[in-house]
Design a binder for these strands. Structure first.
Lengths: 257, 257
DNA sequence: GTCTCACATCGACATAGGTTAGCTCGCCGC
DNA sequence: GCGGCGAGCTAACCTATGTCGATGTGAGAC
């Protein structure tokens, strides 16, 4: 059994069997943005009910498709990505547990990029109608989804700065800070560490680097004692220094605070 | 009088004195996305009524501010940008005539980036109330604004690919294709040419390159007969080749078509 | 156990792009 | 008319990152 599958399996147990004792990542994420009522939470949990386990490297939406549903990631890492005709892939956004993809699916024309899993993922599809219903009946949830969208846009802006203006080490440090913060927000990080169920090649395609250089850069961060990365688990050993190196400023992840 | 001021002045005449014979860039832009009624157009023109001429290199919104109004650019080039602590500037988006900035201002917390003019610009501010009113009374306009936002997001994704995966020449070619297409959509391009009222340094900060390398790259594009750029006016001499070089695919600029 | 495959790692070399510095030209203020 | 300034342009040199090829390593399949 691969690491990736481990992760998927582990959380199916968590999400499936003991639903009572753990909040879903979707609820956790939105609770960082607004105060949810018990009814709001119940409605959200119902959305994630029909979640399915998806294999690594599986497309959830293809280029050119007209998306009928939105998608919520409940466990594992997925991404938005696009291929150049030369074959290079650029990852445009990482979708972590709790992230909702394409809330405005209804307005959308054809997808100009694809969405796919990186690791094994637990994913729920939300039909256009279900989405419309919850937005209409739960204004607080609607507001939370809007704020989440703003955070996604702010994140995209940070990525532009990453790719346009930061060196390889700074980029990587910034990405790690971002991931840690986002995973903390859904209860998936402890002691400045988290799972990182993706390969160095995936990392390369998100950071706009070659996989070889990703490897070199990781070595450097390790050598400086800034991070540990073994197997699929990442730890930021010196968070203040990593943040300083990355010029990481968390508030952009929580708009309207 | 500088080039940039020339451009501002020229269009003030166009937008101010003969309002009857030329549609505002805002109306033109939205008409690419939806079919506007006469009333819709009138309402939009009223929004742009109080436009003012702003000097080059002037901030319209600052980092940390809570934006009270949205902003429409009616002439000239503006941008979203952010400075690193090291002083480098990354331009996150270019705002061209017809572009509306921060329609969801009301939901917004503090600005995580700044908005400022590059050239002299004709700019109208739209109060939160005026915006709410037009969105409520003119659903078609509301829809157009949503679609415009989707186009802006698609553009940001293209920029991520630009910065992450394309070479300097490809990047620049792609940017030029994008600008030409966007300016054509508001009637500000003719015969594959348009104004480009920004410096090579501005270009460098949007493309994530040094100004020296921007210059080199421009020379190369000129040498290959792909573009002409003199003074502040750009012409794509071989549009098919430039598009091929850039892998430019226009439809992303017109969602839902 | 052994085979295989994906991933990580390493070294040697190539190159795109950055840096520094300086020159020119047109415009503006005085 | 002179000095200064911003922008474009060029050349020489430097370095971060890419490319290529080889090797190591661990986990699953059988």
């Amino acid at each position: 059994m691969s690491h990736a599958q481990n992760i998927g399996a582990a959380s199916i147990v968590r999400d499936g069997s003991h639903e009572a004792d753990a909040k879903s990542p979707l609820v956790r994420k939105l609770e960082n943005l607004v105060r949810l009522s018990r009814e709001d939470r119940a409605a959200l949990d119902q959305l994630s009910a029909g979640a399915r386990l998806i294999e690594p490297h599986t497309d959830l939406m293809r280029v050119g498709e007209r998306p009928a549903d939105a998608v919520v990631v409940l466990d594992g890492f997925a991404c938005r990505y696009k291929h150049r005709v030369t074959g290079e892939r650029q990852i445009l956004a990482l979708l972590l547990p709790g992230d909702v993809c394409d809330v405005d699916a209804p307005h959308l024309g054809r997808m100009d990029h694809a969405v796919g899993t990186l690791s094994a993922c637990l994913v729920a599809r939300i039909s256009r109608d279900a989405l419309a219903a919850i937005v209409a009946r739960h204004p607080t949830v609607a507001r939370a989804l809007r704020l989440a969208k703003l955070a996604e846009e702010a994140t995209a802006r940070e990525w532009l700065i990453n790719l346009g203006a930061r060196s390889a080490t700074e980029r990587m440090a910034h990405l790690f800070c971002e991931l840690l913060t986002r995973l903390e927000a859904v209860g998936l990080a402890r002691e400045n560490g988290c799972k990182l169920p993706i390969t160095q090649l995936d990392l390369a395609d998100t950071l706009g680097l070659s996989s070889v250089h990703v490897n070199r850069t990781l070595q450097e961060l390790r050598r400086k004692g800034l991070i540990e990365l073994r197997g699929r688990s990442l730890k930021l050993r010196d968070l203040p220094d990593v943040r300083a190196l990355a010029e990481f400023n968390p508030p952009y992840l929580r708009p309207a605070h």
